[in-house]
């Protein structure tokens, strides 16, 4: 697997994202590697989430949003005419800022996505497996039929992760998954991410630098340019970004002199 390091799973080429005529993100080039945790950090409003959501075409739902440039997933541009965005989202799952379980039972929350995607094996096993993978099984195994909304925030977010895993994606996008959680729940999610990175590639947007430093392998630093458009300033190994940033802006940001 180590040789995969050189082979990116996602290659972003000269990506710009527009909301109507406003250019929200400008000329981003980025390579995401397999089975790594890639963090995207930067001040608020710099387009981190916008970039993340473009990776599985969630921006399609925002009226007036459009992109320029390419996002290659295994060498295939996911914005090509012949690509089905629904298929993209099946392979690139997403966990949102606020936990958003369906108002159904825990079991159904996980089973629904898998069933919809044509899963035909033993559903009970799949539910148990994904809940174990999401480190939630021990807490909920006796109450699988309970409404998911009755779980705590941290449990809900892990359920959302389990739900995404059940669809068997290759990549999991996480949009500030811990911003609504307390520190203990946050720590659990970070441990879980580490665990999951053996089998999945994870891209996480976070405004919490400690989280990026603790939990990620690669870090991309974004900021806003003078047109208020998001630009990528620096990208590299997390250890390098946080200990030896090449760019002055990155250094200012991570040392707290900016934003």
């Amino acid at each position: 697997m180590t040789e995969n390091k050189n082979q990116p799973i996602i290659t972003v080429k000269d990506l710009s994202i527009f909301y109507k005529t406003f250019r929200a993100v400008k000329n981003v080039d980025l390579e995401i590697f397999e089975n790594k945790i890639t963090a995207i950090i930067g001040p608020s409003g710099c387009g981190k989430s916008t970039v993340l959501r473009s990776f599985n075409r969630m921006n399609d739902f925002i009226p007036g949003a459009s992109i320029q440039g390419n996002i290659l997933f295994h060498d295939k541009n996911i914005y090509d005419e012949d690509v089905d965005p629904v298929q993209v989202r099946r392979m690139i799952g997403m966990v949102f800022q606020k936990p958003n379980p369906f108002p159904k039972s825990i079991y159904e929350n996980i089973a629904w996505g898998a069933k919809m995607n044509g899963f035909s094996g033993n559903m009970d096993d799949l539910v148990e497996k994904t809940l174990q993978d999401a480190a939630l099984w021990d807490e909920v195994k006796d109450e699988l039929n309970k409404n998911a909304l009755s779980l705590s925030g941290g449990q809900q977010q892990r359920l959302c992760i389990a739900r995404a895993l059940a669809v068997k994606p290759e990549i999991i996008l996480m949009d500030e998954p811990c911003s609504a959680l307390d520190p203990i729940a946050t720590l659990k999610i970070e441990d879980l991410m580490r665990e999951l990175s053996h089998n999945y590639s994870i891209i996480i947007v976070t405004h919490n630098m400690q989280q990026a430093a603790r939990a990620s392998d690669m870090t991309a630093f974004f900021t806003m340019d003078e047109d208020r458009a998001g630009v990528m300033v620096e990208y590299g190994l997390t250890t390098q970004i946080f200990t030896n940033p090449k760019n002055k802006q990155t250094e200012d940001y991570i040392t707290g002199r900016f934003g």
């Binding site: 295939k76 690509v83 089905d84 298929q87 993209v88 392979m91």
Partner: peptide, 16 residues
């Protein structure tokens, strides 16, 4: 050519 060999590309393709 390399692209065509990747089975993923077919998976991503739009189905009616």
């Amino acid at each position: 050519m390399q692209i065509a060999q990747n089975p993923l590309v077919n998976k991503l393709r739009k189905k009616p």
